[in-house]
């Protein structure tokens, strides 16, 4: 359980890290908290010849709320996000999701940028990031680009981040009704990863649903927005039959469902519908 040999770099700045990435190309891997990468290295599922440790770049660790925008540095750990008081106030979905990732040891090391880039189809962050319609900022030596959450997850373990890019920041617009949100998941008993996880962020007006934004993880090869379900809720009073009928469409956006020894594809679809209903009702109850 020892990784293959690699050359180790610990750049102090983003610029230096980008230069190293350009130099080493696809042979290099970025290391942030290492909670996904180090197990992969130990199992020798990956054997990069260079590891660029961006975990010491302090500029990537900032969390700030100014005006209508929340900015979370890619190196912020799940624990940093879970306990951040301002985030609790302005966007509690972030902390609620962070607190359900892995276990306290993993949350103390693992980072939001690393987790998103890893794009595990059963990770928790994608559901929340999609429900919040977040933007992910990626930088290369050529400049910066902003990727919408809906374009970010490409396939199993594949995000839109290119080999010469570093995710620097996650941007979230403050939700109109921060409290009208929830992240619910069915954890796989051993690993804690989501068999299915549903994040919901609602906007309610006079008892009616003005807008619903629902992210689903664990079900398909990539996390997705449940847009059919969202449309079925828009403009509706959220009574039991409306929510049930809408939640029955929770899996409409994915043609493929993941299957493994823990849950069949059909069972995951069932869980997605049940948890979508519970999530919408729980978020509405909090508003």
């Amino acid at each position: 359980m020892i990784p293959t040999n690699f050359e180790y770099f610990a750049p102090a700045t983003i610029e230096e890290a980008l230069q190293l990435l350009d130099q080493h190309g696809e042979d290099a891997k970025l290391l942030s908290g290492g909670q996904s990468l180090i197990p992969v290295l130990k199992l020798r599922l990956a054997a990069p010849t260079a590891i660029i440790d961006i975990g010491r770049i302090a500029a990537l660790k900032q969390i700030s709320v100014s005006g209508d925008t929340i900015r979370i540095g890619a190196n912020a750990t799940h624990a940093d996000i879970a306990r951040h008081a301002e985030l609790k106030q302005h966007c509690p979905l972030l902390g609620e999701t962070a607190a359900q990732i892995g276990d306290q040891q993993v949350r103390n090391r693992g980072t939001i940028g690393g987790s998103l880039t890893h794009a595990d189809p059963a990770a928790d962050w994608p559901a929340a990031i999609l429900a919040l319609d977040a933007e992910i900022v990626a930088r290369s030596s050529q400049g910066e680009r902003v990727i919408k959450a809906t374009d970010f997850f490409v396939d199993v373990m594949t995000s839109a981040v290119q080999p010469n890019e570093i995710v620097t920041e996650i941007r979230v617009a403050k939700p109109a009704q921060p409290q009208a949100a929830v992240y619910l998941k069915v954890p796989q008993a051993a690993s804690g990863f989501a068999l299915v996880g549903v994040a919901a962020q609602l906007t309610l007006n006079n008892g009616k649903c003005e807008a619903a934004s629902i992210g689903v993880t664990g079900l398909g090869p990539k996390a997705f927005r449940a847009t059919t379900l969202e449309a079925a809720l828009r403009g509706q009073a959220l009574d039991d039959s409306t929510v049930s009928a809408a939640a029955a469409k929770a899996d409409a956006e994915t043609a493929d469902a993941l299957e493994d020894i823990h849950a069949s594809g059909d069972y995951r679809r069932h869980l997605a519908r049940v948890y979508a209903k519970r999530a919408v009702q729980a978020a509405a109850a909090r508003a």
Partner: peptide, 10 residues
């Protein structure tokens, strides 16, 4: 932290 998931250099 889990010391089997942290490189000593970290």
């Amino acid at each position: 932290v889990k010391s089997c998931a942290v490189l000593a250099v970290q």
